[in-house]
Design a protein around this nucleic acid. Structure first.
Lengths: 249, 249
DNA sequence: GCGCTTTTGGTCAGAATGACTCTAAGATGG
DNA sequence: CCATCTTAGAGTCATTCTGACCAAAAGCGC
């Protein structure tokens, strides 16, 4: 029996929920058109090409099936059980990705690609229910100690928007004042001088991600994926006054 | 170019250090006898057989090369860069394992198998230095929030022994009183009525691992590896209600 | 201005943690 | 037997962190 190698990706985006007033976590799935599990929904994926590395394969698959460009991409796990696929031996290296809401709205949805609420999926092909469950667990875990929440929001954002991300992933409301306190203490954001206008109440301040602090949340492997976007040439002044804490941690 | 699939394992054991009075982390390496990197030291590993799952392959390799039986085995990462191995494309699924000190002492060491202090390795074959570095990072991280320390000690142990494990992995001394307080608060151990005799001072109480508390440190995947030791026959009820996640590996 | 909502700064109590002190219990040397 | 040594194990104290809660600030619509 020959063993084949595939790469799949669990793609997360936040969308308004029907049941709750909070946003919730959604993932796009593709309908299988080949024989094992024909007609069932499955994670987007495909074979690993011989001249691409694993993360590239995940990004390519993600783009081909959904048209999406992820803000974040990280390896989840390699699944290699013997009976994952009937009749053949497949080892799947699974990635998980985060896309912004606006980006997700642009995603091509059709007969064979559809979004599902991540916590109430139909029975999927292969062991994909377990895979999604594990990916969700990782997402919720990592939300607490890393800064992946920023991958769901734009360049600048209000603390309410960032809090909305945490609330959506954790599935419960957070105290605005306490959230502000902990985020500011973590120094993961820097305040801009701009405020968001057009609200019908007090205009909130806009914040920006703080690149200076890097939270080594993947250890020596570093960021598994750097966005394919151009490395922002508008940053003419890299650092006006070099912060004394630029090297800290 | 064809892509081959291999499984390797980073094996950790604690051993007395020459430089420090604390124990330190050691790993066994094997000397390469084939052409890419001949003579260099490398992680034990080999190809994935078609009829074994990933964890089994890791355990088999581990046993074949070192004769060791690990207390703990967990998947680390899948490495699939294009230039990991000159001339061929290899995707390596790497596991990490913990073995007890007594077990490690029994390990076969010879011309082609030798133990090294994990934080001062020679240049290894392939990208194995990076892999070990990442595995060490995971070990140190996981020591703080899970109970893997127990994999390094025996059935029963004193709190001083358990503290010695933490000190060895973290590389610094811990306050005995505070360590006791936090361990007892975590309820990860239960006190036995026995005490360790033969010491030249007050005999310390022996503790035992507390099975009742399960710390879901791998989420829905559950323990990646159940020891190959007899699967405790006192569990007469194998599976009361068939788990929906029976496909878990 | 008045009421509404959200932002944003604050207090307060309990939990967790690091540094440290002190007593208990056994072994050993005299 | 007794003083002494070493570690076990209990406790104290100050600091930090966190959740719950309060309240002022700042805009909008009326």
């Amino acid at each position: 029996m020959t063993t084949s190698l595939a790469v799949s990706t669990v793609i997360f985006a936040l969308r308004p929920s029907e049941t709750s007033d909070l946003k919730t976590v959604w993932i796009p799935l593709v309908r299988r058109i080949r024989d094992p599990y024909v007609g069932k929904w499955a994670l987007p994926g495909g074979p690993l090409l011989s001249e691409e590395d694993l993360a590239s394969a995940a990004a390519r698959n993600l783009g081909e099936t959904t048209g999406l460009d992820p803000q974040y991409l990280e390896q989840l796990y390699a699944f290699g059980g013997l009976n994952r696929s009937p009749g053949e031996r497949v080892v799947s290296i699974v990635y998980w990705a985060l896309v912004r809401s606006e980006e997700a709205a642009r995603a091509s949805e059709g007969e064979n690609v559809r979004w599902f609420a991540a916590d109430s999926l139909p029975p999927l092909a292969f062991d994909h229910n377990l895979i999604v469950e594990y990916a969700l667990w990782r997402l919720r875990n990592k939300m607490e100690y890393s800064r992946i929440a920023h991958a769901f929001v734009g360049e600048t954002f209000t603390l309410a928007q960032l809090r909305e991300v945490h609330e959506a992933v954790l599935g419960r409301a957070l105290d605005p004042a306490n959230f502000r306190r902990t985020i500011e203490a973590s120094q993961s954001v820097v305040a801009t001088e701009q405020r968001l206008s057009g609200t019908k109440y007090r205009p909130p301040r806009l914040y920006r991600y703080n690149d200076a602090i890097d939270l080594a949340d993947q250890g020596p492997l570093g960021p598994a994926y750097r966005s394919s976007r151009a490395p922002s040439p508008q940053q003419i002044t890299p650092n006006p006054h070099p912060q004394e804490r630029s090297t800290r941690q």
